[in-house]
């Protein structure tokens, strides 16, 4: 199985390659990619240089152009595809039909991966993207169990890629507007979820309140670890109960199901976190390199939970939907 690792900056790309990535994914510094955070991402020149560095080390670069093109500005997304191709990218990761269609028509030699933002989880949906755009790999939504992935892989004739570590979307990706409801910006519209310019942390007598656009998303006692106020990871009150209604503030660690994913026919394993620093990426990639090598050699990956526990938000981890009890 290939290990696909995130890079928000050229320095992180190099760090990921050195730490053992088989491929690095990254995006341009604009709204064409779903990690459009301040100070992050690549200029065209930086991408070209990054591709050279990766290829010199025998590794690949995948370019995420995975937001939805805005009306009247589709050219910006087309241009991103053209530049990725010119830079020598090994594949483009896309979700929008406008982007997929342009890539398939204008760059027939360029490999296309279907972004998780397209949330293709049925054989019919996968078949649609393969037939219409010759998609070569589908990044699987994070709502499928290992058994469901195995069943899907038996019915489709295309590579699949599964997330194994990092932030966990609890909603169907690419179809969640919670962020724009509160802030006006969302993954699909602007490439950001719960954008930082709407985030405030305020200390009061009860501790620290994390707010997004004025909505209190969570509250922490002074001694407690905090989290980023991502809407779906907040505490809310419903039916008289206050709880982490949508998802606890945990991050995904599928280290324990790597062997299961391999048996399910998954081609590539993806680490989330283009917004994270190179210290984080280096540590996670190194650990997963060891785990994947162990799995490929027939061993098990039980150790990995302990190795990675310190790096996640709030320190807690889950195997998410890969175990069906998550629902």
């Amino acid at each position: 199985m290939e290990l696909i690792c995130p890079a928000g900056t050229p320095a992180t790309l190099r760090a990921a390659v050195v730490a053992g990535a088989d491929a690095v994914y990254c995006g341009f510094r604009n709204e064409t990619n779903a990690r459009n955070f301040p100070g992050l991402n690549f200029s065209t020149a930086e991408l070209a240089e990054g591709v050279r560095f990766a290829h010199d080390h025998g590794k690949k670069v995948l370019v995420a152009i995975n937001t939805f093109a805005q009306p009247g500005r589709v050219d910006l997304w087309h241009k991103a595809v053209d530049e990725a191709a010119q830079c020598g990218a090994d594949a483009v990761i896309a979700a929008d039909l406008a982007v997929l269609d342009h890539a398939a028509n204008c760059h027939p030699g360029l490999r296309l991966h279907l972004s998780v933002q397209a949330a293709a989880s049925t054989p019919e949906a996968v078949k649609f993207y393969v037939d219409a755009f010759r998609v070569r790999r589908v990044v699987l939504p994070r709502v499928l169990s290992v058994q469901e992935i195995a069943a899907l892989n038996r019915m489709i004739d295309v590579e699949t890629e599964a997330f194994v570590f990092g932030g966990l979307c609890v909603m169907v990706e690419g179809r969640c507007y919670l962020s724009s409801y509160a802030t006006g910006k969302s993954p699909n519209l602007s490439g950001v979820c719960s954008p930082p310019e709407h985030v405030t942390y305020e200390d009061d007598a009860e501790g620290t309140a994390a707010r997004l656009a004025g909505f209190t998303i969570d509250r922490y006692a002074q001694s407690q670890p905090t989290g980023y106020p991502t809407l779906c990871k907040g505490r809310f009150t419903a039916g008289g109960k206050t709880s982490y209604l949508f998802e606890d503030p945990v991050s995904l660690n599928a280290g324990g199901v790597l062997a299961g994913l391999k048996a399910a026919g998954v081609t590539a394993l993806k680490i989330e976190g283009r917004q994270r620093g190179k210290a984080y990426v280096t540590e996670v990639v190194r650990a997963f390199r060891r785990a994947v090598d162990a799995v490929e050699a027939g061993g098990d990956a039980a150790e990995i939970d302990r190795i990675l526990a310190g790096m996640s938000e709030g320190g807690r981890q889950t195997e998410g939907a890969y175990k069906k009890t998550w629902r």
Binding site: P141, V143, L144, V170, M171, V172, R175, C176, Y177, L178, Y181, C232, A238, G239, K241, S243, L245, F246, E247, A321, K324, T325, W326, R327
Partner: peptide, 21 residues
């Protein structure tokens, strides 16, 4: 009411400590 998101997880079930199935 605006349809804002869908999930693999059922929140009515989760709130009542039930499994989706």
């Amino acid at each position: 009411r605006l349809p804002l998101a869908l999930s693999g997880r059922c929140y009515h079930a989760r709130l009542n400590n039930l499994h989706k199935d």
